[in-house]
Nucleic acid binder design. Structure first.
Lengths: 229, 229
DNA sequence: ATAATAGTGTCTGTCAGACACTATCGG
DNA sequence: CCGATAGTGTCTGACAGACACTATTAT
């Protein structure tokens, strides 16, 4: 910038780290790749991206391009978590990473043995390269915090879902049971859902199918209190 | 990082942008510098920093060093807001800025004509260089959001304060009146304050002086609802 | 009928808003 | 006494938790 010399020594490699969440079998999962080089060969690695100055006008564009390159078509939510930088996070020296998390549908990519969906509850810190376990944890923590007072977990679901689906999504994110009646009251009173004309049938009472009205999360006035205990 | 080549083209100048808030005369102010070079000469500029790879082990260390260099001794709070990057934000091309906001006491630095405290309510977008008006607005928005459900505005105050001081701090941040009784009940019921043995005297009933118990903001279960209207 | 899940009725507790009220100082 | 600010009493309303209850399907 103009007030400081542009030839300072702050030139360094900037990477984008992407934490992709998806619901699989009612559990929250994270997308990881296998590291293919020493010293972290065999460890899990988050998908990474770079900024291409000739292609990307903003960081967000670089993120979208990178997610698209991973062949995920449905990115229903994306958010910057934080930027981490330091001398200790990569053995080769100073590095800087801009971290985003996002939601995708997991069933769209059945790739090689080099990628994998890991259930959050099975996440082992030692399985990850660099500080990627920490990055996943911080992203998950941000997601949990927002789930307490927003409709964010609804964006993990397909377009059409039942209230039970939605409750299961919250429970997967927050890793705790939620009381059914107050949950349904909260969601219905907020006027963030529309009934569709569909019901989902099984060997029990059919469930009303809903869709989200808004494309961004709703903010509630109160948190889900039971989830803090 | 290892999974991608380290000689990609993501090398660029990374700057730190710092939004310093302070309460002056019960109004929220922002610290700005005068730009000294074209094309933004005469415009306001946020204090900036650079990462020194030989000195700073993390971004946070670079931020702390930069704030210290501005001669602020009391940094009572600091938080990363976001990282902005793009081709359009600086006329010279792609740039990337990691934005932090923090709280300082304004009375510690009486500098040259090159720095100034501007009241948030008088902030003119056109007075700022680059995208710095936007950066201030986003930081202020983050602060406002957090003020709705945390004790963050308390960190704008000196160590000892009255409940009226605290309410004024909230009102300065949120730019709206808060109902006295519910505000006091909220603060006292949260057990985040200790009474000191002092009272503040004037030509009216003396006010009890309090201190914060914790060094980090408290999170309330509900927001200040009146402030959303 | 039964199992299974969808969905409701209703009581209690917490806490925010409103606003009138009382308390205590200096002068 | 008065003016000023500190601080309280108390009602109402919104909404979360708890939990027992009813409803509707497939088999």
């Amino acid at each position: 910038m103009l007030s400081s010399g542009s030839m300072n020594n702050s030139n360094l490699d900037v990477s984008l780290e992407i934490v992709l969440f998806s619901l699989i079998a009612e559990k929250l999962h994270v997308y990881v790749q296998n590291c293919v080089a020493a010293p972290y060969m065999g460890k899990y690695c988050l998908p990474q991206g770079d900024i291409l100055f000739t292609e990307d006008n903003t960081i967000e564009e670089a993120i979208m391009r990178t997610v698209k390159a991973l062949q995920f078509k449905s990115l229903s939510y994306i958010e910057q978590v934080k930027t981490i930088g330091g001398i200790a996070r990569d053995p080769r020296g100073w590095s800087l990473a801009v971290v985003y998390y996002g939601f995708v549908a997991a069933d769209q990519v059945i790739d090689s043995t080099n990628v994998k969906w890991i259930a959050i509850e099975n996440l082992q810190v030692d399985d990850f390269a660099f500080d990627h376990a920490l990055i996943v944890q911080e992203s998950h923590q941000r997601l949990k915090s927002k789930a307490l007072y927003t409709s964010l977990p609804a964006f993990l679901l397909p377009e059409e879902f039942t209230l039970t689906d939605l409750q299961k999504a919250y429970e997967a994110v927050l890793d705790c049971k939620i009381e059914k009646k107050s949950f349904r009251r909260r969601m219905l009173d907020a006027h963030i859902l529309v009934e569709t004309e569909k019901v989902r049938r099984a060997n029990h009472r059919p469930a009303q199918v809903y869709q989200l009205i808004d494309e961004t999360p709703h903010i509630f006035n109160r948190i889900i209190e039971g989830a803090r205990h």
